[in-house]
Simulated scan of single mutants.
Amino acid sequence: MTLDVAWAQRWVRRTAAVIGEHKNELMELDRQIGDGDHGENMNRGFTAVVAKLDALEEPPAQVGDLLKLVATTLMSTVGGAAGPLYGTAYLRAAKVAGLDELDAAAVVAVLEAGLEGIVARGKATTGEKTMVDSWSPAVQAAQTAAADGAAPGAVLEAAAQAAEAGVLATVPMLATKGRASYLGERSVGHRDPGAASSALILRAAAATAADPDLGTAA
Rank of each mutant, 00 (worst) to 15 (best):
G184Q: 09
A93R: 04
A8N: 10
P137R: 03
A217F: 02
T15I: 09
A94P: 15
M27G: 10
E25Y: 11
L74I: 12
D4K: 08
L99N: 14
S76I: 06
L85Y: 03
E21L: 08
E40I: 07
D30I: 03
G98E: 15
I19W: 13
R92A: 03
A113L: 14
S136R: 12
A48M: 09
T176A: 04
I19L: 14
G64P: 05
A106Y: 15
H38N: 09
T130Y: 12
A16R: 11
E185R: 06
Y182I: 01
A204I: 00
A89M: 07
A175D: 13
E21G: 11
G79R: 05
L53T: 02
M42L: 08
P172E: 02
D211T: 04
R121T: 10
A210K: 09
G64F: 04
R92W: 04
E157W: 08
V188P: 01
T144R: 09
L26V: 10
A55W: 07
V167L: 04
M131N: 06
K129L: 06
A82P: 15
V155T: 02
P59G: 01
T144M: 05
E101Y: 07
M173N: 03
I33K: 02
F46K: 14
V132F: 05
I118P: 08
G83L: 11
T216M: 11
R31H: 01
P212Q: 15
